[in-house]
Every structure is written in structure tokens, then in C-alpha cells.
């Protein structure tokens, strides 16, 4: 949906994005200081907690490090508030269109007896004030203001093209019944629909506010998506009813036990021969100790309570434990991000 921010909102979002870009430069400068302090990936402590103390201790006098920390803290604690403020400045103008896009072929239903899982209750992911459902239009605010005016400008690579590109890792076939776990505001869902125009898509998420935005996206394009408020580890959807189960950037937002549940639910809902494609952050084991430190340190201060346990998993091994075959896990195009796990449910024996 096209809309224009007012001056204050636009300039605020521009500022926080500019600060984010400079945060990356400060961190790069800090890396040089780590090296000059005699710390290197192969000499850092193996234990992550010990390593955090080691690097923080070595950088205790580094103004670049402390300024980076300050900038990262301010950006993560403020970007959501600024985005809400920017939205409120144009709310009167665009709210009728947002409400109108709630009408159309795509509907939202809720799993009977649904309750927000304990692991998500009270958590302000990404330090978003009030959490994912903290504002009546949080899905729109996150998708159209935070993603387009902040994350897109500060995150390495093109976050939208990445969502499209990972789908090319699937075998060359037409998927027709797709389940997306953690459908969020529909950024990835629309890429799935573009790639597989005939696919019937079911999108599951625990946040109704985000699914409302996915609903607007679908209705704007005339797509009919089945959007379901439910936990990805317990969707209640029929067994063996999809030929592709997929997610993008869900797994680092849920604890290890839930990730195992999500993969088990994917296996249950996939038909024999169906494919699994999960994309998320770079696992710790695929990084050197210094990169791992920075990943963890950023998560520690960025509202990512489950990053550590998620990034510690070997998802291809989990796939095999659950019965998947042809499981592989790797960085797209040989890069550390986005990180893909792909596998297949075996054909029925006999």
C-alpha cells in the first residue's frame, strides 16, 4: 500500500537508520581494536560466557566499543517508538484504507482454545514496546515502517530479495499446498505466492496483529490465504496436508524445545515426499569464535531471548532425528546469511 510519511516521521526514521549504519562502522572499528588487543578467533575462549567477559574486558577502554553499544541500545530501544509515532502522524489519512483491506478473500481464523504460548508471553521481541501485539496496527507498522525504513536500510543485503531467493533452493516443481509457519506480516508469504502462483497458502502465526497485515497484503493482491492464529508447534492442521512447509526468520524467536516442536509439526503436516525449507540466522557452529561473539552480543542486547539456544542447534541433525531425508543446512550462495535448512519427508514405503 502506497503512503507517504510526514516530515517528522520521515526524518526520524531516516535518523535512526543513519545511526544504525554508523553503528556498523563503529563495530568494524572495534574489530580492529580486538585484533590489536591480541584477541583472535582461534585464541578466544571456547565457552561463550567466558568469551563475552574476555572481549568486553579487552574493550573496556574502547570508546568505539562503548559508542557502538550505546548506538545499538538506542536504536533497538527507540526504532519501534519512532515508527509508531510516524504512523500516528498519518493514521487518519490511511486508516480507512487499512480497514478496507481487511475485507476481501483472505480471512483470519483462530485455532480453538488458542492461548499465547508461555515463551512469547510478556516478551518484547526486538525490544518492540508492548511486543508484537503492542499496537492496534503493529503488523503494518513493523512491515511498512520498520522493515522498509529501518531494517532494509541497515541490514546487509536486500531483505526482500533474500526472501525471494531462498525459494529457488527448492527442487524445480510446482508446489500447490504450502504451509508457512511464522507468517508474520506476509513479506515472505507474498514471495511464496509469486514463486508458486497456483499454490494454496496457509499462514500460521501467534500474532493476530501481524496476520492482519498479511491479510491486507493478500487482499490488496486478490490472493486467498488461509491465515491461522496458532503456535507453529501445534497448528491443529490436518496431517499430511501440505507439499511444502516453510518458514523465514521464525526459529531464532522461539526456544529450543519449541523449534523441535515446529520441525515435528512440519513433518506431521507434510505429505510423503513433501519438502521442508526453513531459513534463519547463521548458527554459531558455522561462525568463528569472534563472529559468534558478535552475533550473541547483539542478540543479548537486542531483544532476542532465544537466539542463543536457537543458533546452537544443528538443524540438519534435527531433521534426520525426526525422519526427514536429504537434509542439508547451509548459507545461501556460500554467505553466512540467510541460513537455509532443507529436507524432504520420505515417500511412503511400499
Amino acid at each position: 500500500m502506497d503512503f507517504e510519511l510526514r516530515q517528522r516521521g520521515r526524518a526520524s526514521m531516516d535518523f535512526v537508520a543513519e545511526l544504525g549504519l554508523n553503528g556498523a562502522r563503529l563495530r568494524a572499528a572495534t574489530l580492529a581494536e580486538v585484533k590489536s588487543a591480541g584477541l583472535a578467533p582461534d585464541t578466544l575462549a571456547a565457552d561463550l560466557d567466558e568469551r563475552v567477559a574476555q572481549v568486553e574486558g579487552a574493550l573496556g577502554g574502547s570508546k568505539a566499543f562503548h559508542t557502538y553499544a550505546l548506538v545499538a541500545d538506542w536504536g533497538s530501544s527507540t526504532h519501534g517508538k519512532l515508527a509508531i509515532e510516524a504512523f500516528e502522524q498519518v493514521r487518519d489519512e490511511i486508516e480507512p484504507r487499512l480497514k478496507a483491506l481487511g475485507e476481501g478473500p483472505t480471512r483470519i481464523r483462530t485455532k480453538p482454545g488458542y492461548q499465547l504460548p508461555d515463551y512469547a508471553r510478556g516478551v518484547e521481541f526486538h525490544r518492540t514496546t508492548g511486543g508484537w501485539d503492542g499496537h492496534e496496527y503493529m503488523g503494518f507498522i513493523h512491515a511498512e515502517l520498520i522493515h522498509r525504513h529501518y531494517v532494509y536500510k541497515t541490514f546487509p543485503g536486500d531483505i526482500f530479495a533474500q526472501r525471494r531467493r531462498v525459494l529457488d533452493e527448492l527442487p524445480d516443481r510446482e508446489f500447490t499446498r504450502v504451509l508457512e509457519l511464522g507468517a508474520s506480516s506476509g513479506h515472505y508469504t507474498r514471495m511464496i505466492q509469486d514463486k508458486f502462483p497456483r499454490a494454496a497458502i496457509t499462514g500460521v502465526d501467534t500474532s493476530v496483529r501481524f496476520l492482519e497485515q498479511a491479510q491486507r497484503v493478500a487482499n490488496e493482491h486478490g490472493w486467498t490465504w488461509d491465515l491461522l492464529v496458532a503456535p507453529g508447534e501445534d497448528t491443529g492442521l490436518p496431517a499430511e496436508s501440505f507439499d511444502l512447509v516453510t518458514s523465514y526468520i521464525l526459529l531464532h524467536e522461539i526456544p529450543e524445545r519449541t523449534i523441535r516442536g515446529v520441525f515435528a509439526e512440519a513433518y506431521r503436516t507434510l505429505e510423503p515426499g513433501g519438502w521442508l525449507l526453513m531459513t534463519d540466522v547463521t548458527p554459531f557452529w558455522a561462525q568463528d569464535r569472534l563472529s559468534e561473539f558478535w552475533s550473541y552480543w547483539g542478540a543479548l542486547h537486542g531483544g532476542e531471548p532465544y537466539w542463543r539456544e536457537s543458533a546452537s542447534l544443528k538443524l540438519d541433525e534435527l531433521c534426520r532425528e525426526l525422519g526427514f531425508v536429504d537434509a542439508k543446512t547451509y548459507g545461501l550462495g556460500g554467505k553466512p546469511y540467510p541460513w537455509i535448512t532443507i529436507a524432504r519427508k520420505p515417500e511412503r514405503a511400499g
Binding site: 554508523n22 562502522r25 563503529l26 572499528a29 570508546k63 562503548h66 559508542t67 548506538v71
Partner: peptide, 19 residues
């Protein structure tokens, strides 16, 4: 102008850091 402004600000907090 914004880029220069932010650089000046951060430069005050972390003098000598290349930005």
C-alpha cells in the same frame, strides 16, 4: 547533511574512530 551530522555526533563520543 544527516550523514555528516551523525558522524560529528559519534565522533565526539568516540574520537579517533574512523566512521
Amino acid at each position: 547533511e544527516r550523514a555528516a551530522f551523525v558522524k560529528e555526533l559519534l565522533g565526539a563520543l568516540a574520537p579517533g574512530t574512523p566512521l
